[in-house]
Design a protein around this nucleic acid. Structure first.
Length: 309
DNA sequence: AAGTCGTGGTT
DNA sequence: TAACCAAGACT
């Protein structure tokens, strides 16, 4: 029963795939030359700035986040500043970033930080994970980016980089797998400072070079070692990525309803909300959903507004 | 564990 | 142009 371990010892890796040490130095060196100057990466952002940016960046491109982030941090420079606001103000300030429940959760996280952590963004992964709106990725990202800790930061960019460079496939699986987590942990540099830099650098590589479409291998610092490229860049096998048609969905109706309420300075009569969508059953379901989510507050007399509490 | 949850730019 | 994509979380 001969061993089938690869020389690299990395699970899920294609035979002959590069090990961690071969990737860290070139990717980190590339990052130090090519990292974008983003406001949440500057020292003055602090842990709260990092955390706010991570909420906003969930499923949302950097360019759309930038202006909202700046306004948000100017208005609520500390968690306690946001915590004493009405949650509806967070939803309003969220603007058109999308997925407005994130605004509600960020507000809830600010309240929890104020109540449980003396107003300081907690440093421990488990404490971060316990906050509303923070899952495995965001907890690791805040701990790593804000506090320089050693965590596997596995977002869609890093997953794609590892899928290609190490595993040799064009795309990672649709849902994050245990094998991916294991691989990311194994590739994590032992040294804490190196690990946090690797996390930021591998993510940036996926965002700028190793993109989902039109990847730029000619500019890639690890192209020479990339398992996928060396295999001839075979096309993705398996089920399609996903199909998320938007037109006609409840999400579209919710979006229209909330857009009206965001712009309104006074409670809005139901008759005004009714104009955003013709079909009454779907319209009512969408509004009920918003109320159930705490994004909308129903008042007496068929009036609605963003939540005051 | 597959569905749900916004929005707008790109192809 | 319809489909894809963008630093996920939650149920």
């Amino acid at each position: 029963m001969p061993s089938c371990r690869t020389a690299s010892g990395t699970s899920g890796a294609t035979p002959g795939a590069p090990d961690g040490a071969a990737l860290h130095a070139p990717v980190i060196a590339w990052f130090e030359e090519n990292a974008r100057d983003l406001p949440w990466r500057r020292p003055e952002a602090g842990p709260w700035g990092v955390m706010v940016s991570e909420f906003m960046l969930q499923q949302t491109p950097v360019n759309r986040v930038l202006p909202v982030y700046e306004q948000w941090m100017a208005r609520w420079p500390r968690p306690a500043d946001l915590a004493e606001e009405a949650p509806g103000e967070a939803v309003r300030a969220w603007g058109r970033l999308g997925y407005p429940r994130r605004a509600l959760r960020l507000h809830g996280a600010a309240v929890a930080i104020t109540e449980r952590h003396g107003g300081d963004v907690p440093t421990q992964h488990a404490q971060l994970l316990a906050l509303p709106g923070i899952g495995e990725y965001t907890a690791a990202a805040v701990a790593s980016f804000a506090y320089g800790q050693r965590h596997a930061v596995l977002d869609t960019n890093v997953r794609r980089v590892l899928a290609r460079a190490v595993t040799g496939t064009q795309y990672p699986p649709n849902a994050t797998t245990a094998a991916e987590r294991r691989l990311a942990r194994e590739l994590l540099p032992e040294d804490e400072s190196m690990a946090s830099r690797w996390a930021a650098a591998s993510m940036e590589l996926g965002a700028l070079i190793c993109t989902a479409k039109n990847e730029s291998c000619v500019r890639c610092p690890i192209a020479a070692q990339c398992a996928w490229r060396l295999a001839g860049k075979p096309a993705h096998e398996g089920p399609p990525r996903r199909g998320q048609t938007y037109a006609g969905t409840d999400r579209q109706v919710r979006g229209r309803l909330l857009a009206v309420l965001r712009e309104a300075v006074a409670p809005v009569p139901q008759a005004v909300l009714d104009r955003v969508w013709d079909e009454p059953v779907q319209r009512a379901r969408a509004l009920d959903g918003l109320v159930a989510d705490g994004l909308v507050e129903p008042l007496q007399g068929g009036l609605y507004r963003l939540p005051l509490a």
